[in-house]
């Protein structure tokens, strides 16, 4: 099986960065998805698309700002009007299966598996670190678990999904364009350095 290189370059070093006393209040982990697939419907074809995806367990499609996890573990996030991103951590065949399921008149399917880096930011100070660059209210009330938003960290576009909205120890999934991955990694490390961050990466 051909090994996929991480979009993070050699300069994105793992380990402990920033303030070093005590357990790290911020954790930054890169864990790639096996598949990322964008599905776009045309006005009026969403119903047909949902019907075509039902056998794969991916219907109904989530509404704006939401995500839904299928029994298979595939997560579908709503990213724009008539547009969804399916994320699967294990099944690399998802792009082909979705392309096969959807006809050109119903929806367009684009494989973005290699186009994104996937970073998990968690810990007691995760919100404070993200608040240095994300102009959104990341409190548990405003963004409960399962909510999705595409926004920026400083000047880099990111899609943020709330994995866990616990007040004391939240977890966030960040998807960023691969070419920006190294830059976002160092921005996050710098943001979290004030409190201390423990970093792990793929490859």
């Amino acid at each position: 099986m051909l090994e996929r290189a991480s979009p993070l370059g050699a300069a994105s070093t793992p380990g402990r960065h920033g303030a070093a006393d005590g357990p790290a209040p911020v954790l930054l982990h890169e864990t790639p998805a096996a598949a990322l697939v964008q599905v776009s419907t045309f006005p009026g074809t969403e119903g047909a698309a949902a019907a075509a995806l039902a056998p794969l367990g991916l219907a109904p499609l989530p509404g704006p700002g939401e995500s839904r996890e299928a029994v298979s573990g595939t997560v579908v996030t709503a990213t724009g009007p008539g547009r969804w991103l399916a994320i699967d951590l294990h099944d690399g065949t998802l792009p082909v299966r979705l392309a096969d399921a959807l006809r050109a008149e119903t929806a367009s399917v684009v494989d973005l598996t290699h186009a994104r880096a996937r970073l998990i930011v968690s810990g007691p100070r995760a919100r404070d670190a993200l608040a240095k660059g994300v102009p959104l209210d990341l409190s548990g009330e405003a963004r409960p678990a399962g909510s999705v938003a595409t926004t920026r960290f400083a000047h880099v576009t990111v899609q943020i999904r709330v994995l866990d909205d616990a007040p004391a120890d939240p977890r966030f999934e960040l998807l960023v364009m691969s070419s920006f991955a190294g830059s976002l990694w160092s921005d996050l490390v710098e943001a979290a350095a004030e409190w201390g961050v423990a970093c792990r990466r793929h490859g």
Binding site: G133, S179, S186, D187, E190
Partner: peptide
């Protein structure tokens, strides 16, 4: 300017072959 100064003034995009 906060963190957006010097080397981190703007994000950097790198290709897969950077290293």
């Amino acid at each position: 300017h906060g963190a957006e100064v010097g080397a981190t003034l703007a994000p950097v995009r790198r290709t897969a072959l950077h290293d």
